[in-house]
Design a binder for these strands. Sequence first.
RNA 1: GCCCGGGUGGCGAAAUGGUAGACGCGGGCGACUUAAAAUCGCCUGGCCUCAGGCCUUGCAGGUUCGAGUCCUGCCCCGGGCACCA
Length: 894
Amino acid sequence: MQRSLDARQGECGALSCSAMPYEPQSIEARWQDFWRQRETFRAERDPAKPKYYVLDMFPYPSGAGLHVGHPKGYIATDVLARYKRMRGYDVLHPMGWDAFGLPAEQYAIETGVHPRETTRRNIATFKRQIESLGLSYDWSREIDTTDPGYYRWTQWIFQRLFERDLAYQAEVPVNWCPALGTVLANEEVIDGKSERGGHPVVRMPMKQWMLRITAYADRLLEDLEELDWPEPIKKMQRDWIGRSEGAEVRFPVADHEDLTIEIFTTRPDTLFGATYMVLAPEHPLVSRITTDEQRAAVSEYVQATNRRSERARMADGKRKTGVATGAFAVHPVTGARLPIWIADYVVAGYGTGAIMAVPGHDERDFEFAQTFDLPIVHVVDVAGQELPTTGDGTSVNSGFLDGLPSAEARRRMIAWLEAEGRGRGRVTTRLRDWLFSRQRYWGEPFPVLHLEDGTVKLVPERDLPVRLPELDDFRPSGDQRTPLERATAWMETVDPETGQKARRDRNTMPQWAGSCWYFLRFVDPHNETEPWSRECEQSWMPVDLYVGGAEHAVLHLLYARFWHKFLYDLGLVSTKEPFRKLVNQGMILGSSWRYYDDNVTDDPAARPRVLSFRDVRAEEERIVAADDGRELKARWVAPDRVRLVEGRTLHPTLDIELEEVIEKMSKSRGNVVNPDTIIAQYGADSMRLYEMFLGPLDKEAPWTTEGIHGVHRFLQRVWRLFVDDDLPGEPARPLSEEHGPDTQERLSAETIHGVSEDLEALRFNTAIAKLMVFARDATKEAPLSRRSGEAFVKLLAPLAPHLAEELWQKLGHTESIAYAAWPLADPALLASTTMTLAVQINGKRRDEIQVPADADDDTVRSAALAAENVRRHLAGRQPRKVIVVPGRLVNVVL
RNA sequence: GCCCGGGUGGCGAAAUGGUAGACGCGGGCGACUUAAAAUCGCCUGGCCUCAGGCCUUGCAGGUUCGAGUCCUGCCCCGGGCACCA
C-alpha cells in the first residue's frame, strides 16, 4: 500500500486522524431504511423466471430476545436468498412468529400481564433485532400465528381433518403434567418429564382430541426417500414411526372361552419356542384373568408400577420383575398351557401390550425366564451359538418348520396362522395418534360445538375464527378444569343452525398447530377468502431450502409433513412433501467458567465451602469433593468477570482456579452474547460474516469475541480498496477502466468461480476465505480495474450487503445491488498458461517444476527428472517408474 | 447396549485418493507514531547436524506409485434412541 502517505500526513495537520475509515453504524442504518422504504425485497412472481423459496423455522418470540446463536440460520438463508436474487430467481424469503404456546402463558401467570401483550412486546424486540442484521425478508408477508386472521385458517384446516375422520375425540391414557396443568404429546415428554420445564408427567385416562397421524405412517416413511434432508434426521423420523413387520397371533385363555390374548411378534418363526406369556401391567385383561390366589400380588404389582416413574424404572436397569396371574394361555399350535405373567418390561403402549415370551431367542425373555425359573426352549439354531440367540438361523424343535431358514419359517408360520384363523401377518408402528388438545389458554380454540345430545358439530365456516375469549386469570385450575371454562359466557352458546343450546370446546390446540402450515400461508398471506390461492401455491411451493435446528426432527417436521400430505389428498397443495431440502444449522456455543460449592440446596444464608474444579471428582451422576466426598453443586462465572493471573483463570474475588466450559448459550450459565452489543461495536456486516466464517453451517462452533476482529479488518480492507478516506470529497478511488494485469484478471476469475461454487453448496466459510484472498492480493501489482472491482462487490453483496450497497453506490450506480446480475468467470482466464507441478520421490514431495499448461506427459516427465533436487535424490540411478498425474504432480518411484 | 456424527497447529478451520495445515484468531518481528491504538509488511506444526533432512491429521494394521481421505480392529468426544416384542 504505497498510496499517498504524504496525503495522510497533510490531512493530519488539518483534521483529526481519528476519523473511522469504515463506519458500519451509519452505513447500515441508511441501507436498512432504503430497503424498507423501497420494499426492495417484496417477492413478486414472474412466471418467466425460476423461483426459489428459502425459509427459516420461524421463531417463538421469547421474552429474553435473541442471542448470537439464534440468527446463524437466518444469516445463512439470507445469504442464499440474496445470492439467488442476483442469479435471476424470484425469491420468496418470509419471516413470522410462532407465538402461541406455554412460555408466554407461564410468564402471564407469573406477572399477570396478558399473553397478547407480552407476545406483542416480544415480537417487537425480535423484529427489531432481526432487522438490525439487514436480513432481506419480505416483511409484507409477516405472519403471527396468534392473529385471528391466521388462526381462522388453522381452525379451518382442523375442520377438514374432522370431516375426514382424521380428528376425533377419545378417552385415552395421556401424559398429564400436573405442574403445567395440561396433557402433553408423546413427543413432548422426555424421560418421563415435560420437554418444557422438566416437570414430572403421569399417565392417566382422559377424553382428548386426537389426530390420526398413524393413517399416514407408511407414506411419511416412504416419502422420506425423495427428500434432500440430513440422513440422521430421516433416521430419527424412521425410528419414531418405527414400522415393523411380523404377525399378530391370538392365544386363547384357558378356562375363559370368551377371552383371547392378542400379541404381536416380529419372529413368528419362534412360535414353537414360546413358553409363557406376558401382559403389560396396564393391560385390560389383567383383572379378568387373574386368579383369586394371585389377585393380591397382581394388584400390588400394578400399583407399584403406576407409582414408579419411567425414570425410576430405567434406573433399575435391566433387572426383571413380574408376577404370575395364575391364568394360562393355550399355545395356538401345540396346545400347551403357557403361564400368563404380568411384568413392566412389556409396555402397554407398543403393539398390543402383550407378548409371547420366547426365552431361547430374546434377551429380555431369557433374563425373565432365568429370574423366575421358567422353561427355555431352543427353536432356532444359529451356527453353534449358545442361547439366547436373537439372529436368524435354522428352525429346530419346531414341528413343520424344522430345517427351514428363519425368513422362510416366518412366511410358513404366517400362512399357517392365517389358514387356521389363529393370526395373520401384520405391520405395526411405534407411532401413535397425535394427542392434539391442551388444557391451556394461549392457543387456538377448537372450532366445534358440543350439543346437548352429545353430538359434536363444526362451527359454520362463516363464523370462523372462533376467537379466544378475554380472560384475566389464565392459570390452570389444579383440577382438570381448563382456563377456557372460566369464560362461561363464551362457553355457553347456541348452534346458529338449529338454535339448540351448545357448549364450546374447553381445550386449545397445541403449539405445533400453527407451524404445521405457516409455510403455505406465506405464499398468500392476506387472502381472506381461503387459506391460500391455488395460483400462489403452485408458483412458490415447495420450499426449496428449509433451515432450522435439529431439535425439531420429530416434532414440527413430522407434524407438518402429515398436514401437508392431508392437504395434498384434498387437492389443496400440489406437492407430496413441503420441504425439498433441509439443513440443520449447528449451534453457536458460549463459554463460561465453573467452580463448585457445597450449598447444594441453594440456601441464601449458607456460608458454603468453595472448591476449584481440581478438587472434585465425579461419582456416578453427582459431583463430590475429592477429599471428604461431600456433594457439590456447580457455580458459573461469566467470561467478563474472571481474573487472569499468571496464566491462570481465577474467580473474581476468591483465590480459586476456574474451569472453562463451552456449551449451549443459556441465561443460567451467563454465557449468552447479545447481538445488539456486537452490532453496535462492529456492525451487522461483521456479525454476519463472522457467523458464516466460523466453520461449516451445520457444525456447532464456539463464539469468541476476538474472532470477529478478523472479519472486521477484512471489511475495512475492502473499504479502502474502493474508498480513499484521505481524500475528503472523493467518493471513491478512481478505478482503472482498462483491464487489470493478467494476474489480477485471473485472480478475479478464480474468485468468481470459487465463491459461486461455495455459495451453491452453502460453504460460506470457504467463500469468505476466497474473498479475503482477493482483497489481500488483487492490488499487489496494479490498482484495481473497474471490471474486477465491481465483480468483487457483487460477490460480497450476499454476505455483507450494507457495505456492498454503499460501495456499489460509490462506484456510480443508482440502483440497489440486490438485483445486479451475478458475475460470470471468463473460462479462458481460469485455464492458466503455465502450471506448477509438485515432484514426489516415492510419494514424498521433493521439488516442483513449472511447465506449460498444455505440456504432454513426456515433457512433464523429463522436466521432473531434470529438477535439481530430483537429480540429487536419483544420484544417477534410473527410476523404476514415473507417474504423471495431469495437472497435479509427478511421482518418481525408485 | 444400539444407531448416527466427529477426532487435523496454541485456537476456529481448509484439503475431487495427488504439494497437509488455505483463510482467520492468537503470538512474534519490523514499518509508521513523541507514545499508544489503528493500519501496513514479514514470520508462525514439531524436531535436527537447517540452501537440506526427519517426524506429523486419535491409536494399531492393511490396500495403493501415493492415504487426513478407502478397508479392518480399537480408543476418546458429541448427538439421537433405549426393555419396541
